[in-house]
Amino acid sequence: MDAVTILAFAAVSFVGIATPGPTVLLALNNGSRYGVRRAIPGMLGAVFSDFVLIGAVAVGLGALLAASEFWFSVLKYCGAAYLAFLGVMLLRSKGSLDVALAEQGGGSRSAIAIGLKSFMVAVTNPKGYLFFSAFLPQFIDPTSPQASQYLLLALVFSALDFFIMFGYAVFGSQAARFLKTSGAIWLERACGGALLALAGSLAFYRRATA
Rank of each mutant, 00 (worst) to 15 (best):
G62S: 10
F132I: 11
A122V: 14
E103C: 15
F132R: 12
L75H: 09
N125C: 10
V12R: 15
G79C: 05
P137C: 14
L61I: 07
M165V: 12
L198P: 00
Q104W: 06
A67G: 14
V156Y: 10
L155H: 15
M165P: 00
T19L: 08
V121L: 09
C191N: 00
L28K: 06
R177H: 04
P137G: 10
D141L: 09
S158A: 12
L7Y: 09
L65R: 06
G60D: 09
L196R: 04
F171V: 12
L116C: 15
I6F: 06
F163T: 13
A113T: 08
P137Q: 11
E188D: 15
S73G: 10
L83C: 03
L90P: 00
I140D: 04
W71D: 15
L152C: 13
G107K: 06
A39Q: 02
A39I: 07
A56R: 07
L179W: 01
G31V: 04
G167N: 03
I112E: 13
A176F: 00
L152M: 15
G35E: 02
Q104Y: 04
V15E: 10
P22V: 05
G60T: 13
D161C: 10
F119E: 07
Y205H: 14
P20L: 05
F139H: 05
A10F: 10
E103Y: 07
T5G: 07
R109M: 14
T209V: 15
S201W: 06
G87A: 05
F70E: 13
T181D: 13
L198G: 03
G106M: 03
S133A: 13
L101A: 04
T143D: 14
I54R: 06
R189K: 04
L83A: 02
A203L: 06
A208R: 15
A63V: 12
M1F: 12
S158T: 12
L179A: 02
F166E: 01
G16A: 07
A67K: 12
A175Q: 00
A147I: 05
L198Y: 04
M165D: 08
L83P: 00
S173E: 05
L75K: 15
F119M: 10
G107A: 07
V12G: 11
Q138V: 05
A81T: 10
A134L: 14
L65F: 05
V52R: 09
